[in-house]
Design a protein around this nucleic acid. Structure first.
Lengths: 158, 158
DNA sequence: GTAACTGTACTCGGATATTCCATGTCCGAGTAGGGTTGG
DNA sequence: CCAACCCTACTCGGACATGGAATATCCGAGTACAGTTAC
């Protein structure tokens, strides 16, 4: 799994602490010491998925498109990595030497079924977590975080 | 996910149908129309993981190291893709601008926790399936498969 | 006839190229705000 | 003084390099069998 997912998730948490004010990719990248252009790429992916809204020009940036409780971890992963199945069945049983050449199999390959079932539970588990959960956990760990982050963003402003 | 996993799983099913007789990588590759040398690489990975045993020389090849009920889909995936976590937390919160530089966080990052929890259920789901399940499903779908496969391996023999 | 020997063909195993995707970077279109200028 | 205009700085957005891993391949070490030969 790409590390862009981790960046995107943490970025969403910071956007919550920003309180709805747009935060530019440059600012976010500076906060986490990340390559600005590449983080911008990830944020664009979130924008395409409708998780954040983008605002161009000065005073522009990104902000959450919905409330944190309504954004699941699965949506973030899907936005960055793509929502498709990670396991792709190539139906190699249809090419088996002993099988009839153009046979159409009624039921899908049981191996693919197992893989997809496992992925389904994985996605369900991810969908059980929201950005709000991570915000709450971070604030429980470091109560002063929201104020500090907001202050940092303000001071770096301009 | 790499397609080597699919090859390895199907290969295990064929090994069951071979009834304990060693089957060479070349034979298996010919059966599924796969690149022989590369399938050999995957089988070597299975051998390193202890899922199959290898036998060199003529009449050699691979056979299952245990009974099909004792080989889970997770073990196959782990043997090919590596058993490590697919999500690797880089602790970017420790590099946050507002955070204390060398602060040691007591509890792990909640995002990483969520990811690992989801992966845990994924692995558990995969571990719930065994090669025997796939063999049973395939025989239910195509009752003559075992005999056909065995015959094909015999005829192609030599 | 039998037993030992030798040669061959076939196997795994790891070292070696190649292709593709994730990573990382760059520049262009567009916008808001401030400074300037003319009335 | 005020309003219109322009210019600059800053933003997102997508097009463009780069590196490492997955994909694919090849050759060497080792083994079992068959054929051969000596006794």
């Amino acid at each position: 799994m790409g590390e862009g997912v981790e960046w995107a998730a943490h970025a969403c948490v910071v956007l919550v602490w920003a309180g709805g004010d747009p935060v530019s990719a440059t600012r976010l990248a500076a906060y986490y010491r990340l390559p600005p252009a590449y983080l911008n790429k990830q944020l664009q992916a979130l924008a395409r998925a409708g998780l954040v809204t983008s605002l161009p020009g000065p005073r522009g940036g990104f902000r959450l498109a919905r409330s944190p409780e309504r954004i699941t971890l699965w949506e973030v992963v899907a936005a960055i990595e793509g929502g498709g199945e990670t396991f792709h069945c190539t139906e190699i049983r249809a090419r088996a030497g002993g099988a009839v050449r153009d046979r159409r199999f009624g039921s899908p390959c049981s191996i693919a079924v197992a893989m997809h079932e496992a992925e389904r539970t994985w996605r369900a588990e991810l969908a059980g977590w929201t950005i709000a959960d991570f915000v709450a956990a971070a604030e429980r760990e470091a109560p002063g975080a929201p104020g500090r982050v907001r202050a940092w963003l303000e001071t770096a402003e301009r």
